[in-house]
């Protein structure tokens, strides 16, 4: 598979959220606005790429039996880096994302890619794979955040589109996350089937 194909597969065809249905907790939990979704997506992309690189580098030294715990430690290291960096430089975003930053550790997408891809492939392919899947995840979160923000508060990336009083508050609250994601997946299913 060419690197370009490897990169683009994560965005639509194997989109981690819409198609593979992985990483649902942050997807639903932080997407009350587009900017939160994007922040979470980029943080996860960073962790995904870095852990893919390291896992791919050390894959020959790690005995098979302890590979999952070692992957978890590698991932947790990068999550801690993201956590401390974000706390220092982006305190507002850190506050909004809250608990979901440390929870990147248990995001099945990250561990899934380490186990299924990076532990078998070369470093370059692993970086490309991590970037592709990460961008697909960011795209999904930003889209869902954008839809919820638009329907709920009448804004898009904080810019007002229509007066807030016409918005349906439901979409910013918990139930709206489930419902919006449900319809988005239905639409993506239709698009993928039509191809």
């Amino acid at each position: 598979m060419s690197q370009l194909k490897n990169f683009t597969k994560g965005i639509l065809k194997e989109n981690p959220v819409f198609v593979l249905l992985l990483g649902m907790c942050p997807t639903l939990g932080v997407t009350s606005s587009a900017i939160n979704g994007m922040g979470m997506g980029l943080a996860t992309t960073f962790v995904l790429m870095m852990s893919n690189i390291v896992v791919s580098m050390v894959k020959d030294f790690i005995p098979d039996k302890v590979r999952i715990p070692s992957f978890i430690v590698i991932i947790a290291t990068f999550v801690t880096i993201v956590q401390l960096t974000m706390q220092a430089y982006l305190p507002a975003l850190f506050e909004n994302l809250g608990l979901f930053i440390p929870l990147i550790v248990v995001n099945c997408i990250v561990l899934g890619r380490a186990e299924a891809y990076a532990s078998k492939q070369s470093i370059v392919s692993s970086i490309v794979d991590g970037a592709g899947i990460g961008i697909g995840f960011t795209f999904a979160l930003t889209l869902l955040g954008g839809v919820r923000e638009f329907l709920g508060a009448g804004t898009f990336f904080g810019t007002s589109i229509y007066p807030e009083k016409f918005g349906s508050l439901l979409f910013v609250l918990a139930p709206g996350a489930f419902i919006a994601l449900g319809y988005l997946i239905a639409v993506i299913n239709q698009i993928n089937r039509a191809k």
Partner: peptide, 19 residues
């Protein structure tokens, strides 16, 4: 409807349950 089968309807149901 075909597109709603499986996960989409499950998510929408969860939304109503959350409500």
């Amino acid at each position: 409807p075909k597109g709603l089968k499986g996960t989409p309807i499950a998510l929408i149901t969860a939304g109503i349950l959350a409500m």
